[in-house]
Structure formats: C-alpha cells, structure tokens
Design a protein around this nucleic acid. Structure first.
Lengths: 198, 198
DNA sequence: GTCTATAGGTGGATAGAC
DNA sequence: GTCTATCCACCTATAGAC
C-alpha cells in the first residue's frame, strides 16, 4: 500500500510552500509584471509547466504571497500587544522585531510594497491588501494611543504617527534591495522609536 | 517663410516635455514593466507610433524621467543649504518643501521608488540612480552634520538619520497611491522633523 | 506528478502612407 | 510630423507524453 491520502496532501503542501518561498524573492525584487513564470520556476528549481499544478496562474501566486505577508504583519502587531509590559515596551518590542525582520528577510514587506506599487492588484489580492491596510493600521493606532495614555508617546494624532511608521518600514524594505550603499549603517531600534518619543 | 529652425526645436522640446509629464504619471502608478507604450501614448493624447519620434524606446522614456527626478532631488537639497538661517532651519525648510511636494505631485519621488523596485534598471538609468543615491545622500548627511555641530540635531550617526529620512519620504510617496485610507491625516513638518530632534 | 512542446495572445518596435 | 498597419519576439497557459 502506497502513501495515504493525508501524506500526499502534506507533500503537496510542502512543495507548494517551497514554491511560494522562491516566488516571494523573485516578486519582491522585480515586481508582479516583470516577473516571468520562467523566473519563478527557475527559482524553485522546477519546470515551467509544473507551476500550474500548484497555482492556476501567475496572479494567484502573487495573491497567495500578499495574503501571507498580510497575515504575518497582523500577527506581529497582535503578538506585540499580548506582550507583558507597558505599551511603550510593546512598541519597543515591535520596532526591534520588525527592523530585524526587514534586515534579514525584506521580501515579506517588499511583497506589500510591490502590491501597492503595482496599482490595482485585482480581486482577492486587493481585498487582502485592504484588510491589511485597515486592520494592521488600526491595531497600530490602538497601541500608540495606549502609549499616549501612559504619557510615553508624543501627543501627535496617533493615526499620523502610525502612517509615518508604516511608511518608514516600507521605505526601509525598499531601499534594502539597492546594490550600492550597503555600507550605510542599518537603523537601530532607538532611531525608529524616536518617532514616538515625547 | 515658415518656422525657423529654432522655433521647430522649441516646439519639439515642448511636445517632448508634455509627453514626459504624461508618462511620469503612468510609470509612477504602474511601474516600468506594467506600463505599455499604448498607455503612454493615450496619457499624452498622441498616437502609439509617435512616441518613437521622441524616444527610441520605452526604457529611454523611463530613463529620462529618472534623470529628471534625480536632478530635482539634488537641486532641492542644494537649495536648502543655500538658504539663510541655521542648519536646523534649513532642515525645517527642506522637510516642509518635500512633504508638500510629495502631497501635491507624488509622481516625482515615485519614479525613483519604481526605479528601485524594478531591480536593475540598466545602463544610463542605473548610473543616474547611483549618482542620486550617493550625491543626494551625501548632501543630506552634510546638512545633518551641520545641525549636529549646532547642537539642534541628535547625535545619532548622520548617515543613519539620512537613511531613515529617505526611507520615510519614499514610503510616504508610495502610500500616497493607495486608494483607501485617504482620510489619514497627512504628516506635518514637525512629525518628520521629530526624527532629528535631540 | 513532472516534464516538453505548442497554441494563442500581447506588446514592442518599424515601415510606410499621408 | 503624425498616424495606421504590420512584423516579430516573447510570454502565458494548455495539451499531452512519460
């Protein structure tokens, strides 16, 4: 008796996962339109046609990646808010974690940058992005407001601060793919936190 | 006697200018790869083939726009440094001016965002980008260091501050093309300046 | 499941009429 | 100078062999 159905499912899921990981790097660097199916296949080490066994088309691959990055982002803020300690310490934790994540694997936020820059990622992807933009943003605002209650965060409108913070993170991820200027010192947590300091 | 040669040159330059302006908006929103020559022609109100009378190919149009944005950026910092007043006031002026520029016409910085995101814009465009990244960056660093001498700017390494500032501006330009979230209050000069405050 | 080969479509660049 | 028509390369998606 060969593999069970469950095992097959697991294998397929793993392969799909590996493909996504490869595709994420490609999309992050070149964007949706400039990334060819050939590139995705080559990056994943599989043949051109096989990609279509895991996803119906190119946009679906991209959509899955956007969904993934969105989830990751939302989860990160949620995690920060569950942390013990004051709101300020939660902000601190979040900044450290995000800066570290961007430095080590910028492709996650870069997928979102590309999705934004690609104007009109249609259908389900657009919906995921919208959920992200609103849910993630709202969570962040709440955290900042808590810090303001506490007196550790400047009284600038929380939405404005959250907006700036998001822009900075995306900008940092974007500039991370520049070949030159690698000698520039990567920002420390405290530099990012300076945005909130009273 | 018809138009003189000089007049013809002027006319051609003007048309070229109008085409560039239309193309800038298209490229800024969709990126290099996703923008079709049809889009450029339509945006400029001319026929498909006529674009090729002004530029040899699509990349050349994009290259000209990158060059333009680069010049604009460099000039802006130079202008700030020639201003009367303390380095801190010059930084203040720069932030106000840039924030205003991004809000009114984000397509200038967005061209640079797209150039970065498009990975390897080859040949002359890459060179222009490199000039930008280094020259603009260096000017900014110098300005920040002057502010530090003066004691108005935090002692964080100037390169790190300049890097953060650049990332923030590009991120703001990027998020400016999001359709939703237009109700978010646009950042004020002081919020951006907070990055430098001691 | 995985591959290669192919059909169909899209878009960049050019030729040539006006 | 400006346009339309055409060529050709490339890319997506599918069919079908193994």
């Amino acid at each position: 008796m060969p593999r069970t159905e469950a095992q097959n499912q697991r294998l397929k899921a793993e392969r799909r996962r590996a493909l996504l990981e490869a595709a994420r790097r490609v999309f992050a660097r070149k964007g949706l339109a400039a990334s060819k199916m050939t590139d995705l296949a080559a990056a994943a080490g599989i043949s051109y046609g096989l990609v279509y066994h895991y996803f119906p088309d190119k946009e679906s691959v991209f959509a899955a990646l956007v969904e993934e990055s969105v989830q990751q982002g939302i989860q990160l803020v949620a995690e920060a808010r569950q942390h013990s300690g004051s709101p300020w310490e939660q902000l601190q934790w979040l900044c450290t974690r995000v800066l570290d994540g961007v430095q080590r694997e910028p492709s996650f936020p870069l997928i979102l940058v590309q999705a934004h820059a690609s104007e009109s990622v249609p259908g389900p992807v657009g919906q995921a992005l919208e959920r992200y933009s609103s849910q993630f943003f709202q969570q962040l605002v709440t955290l900042i407001e808590a810090g303001q209650e506490e007196g550790r965060v400047v009284r600038t409108p929380a939405a404005e601060l959250a907006w700036m913070w998001l822009a900075t993170i995306q900008g940092l991820a974007l500039m991370r793919i520049l070949p030159h200027m690698n000698h520039v010192p990567y920002p420390k947590t405290n530099t990012l936190l300076r945005l909130f300091a009273p």
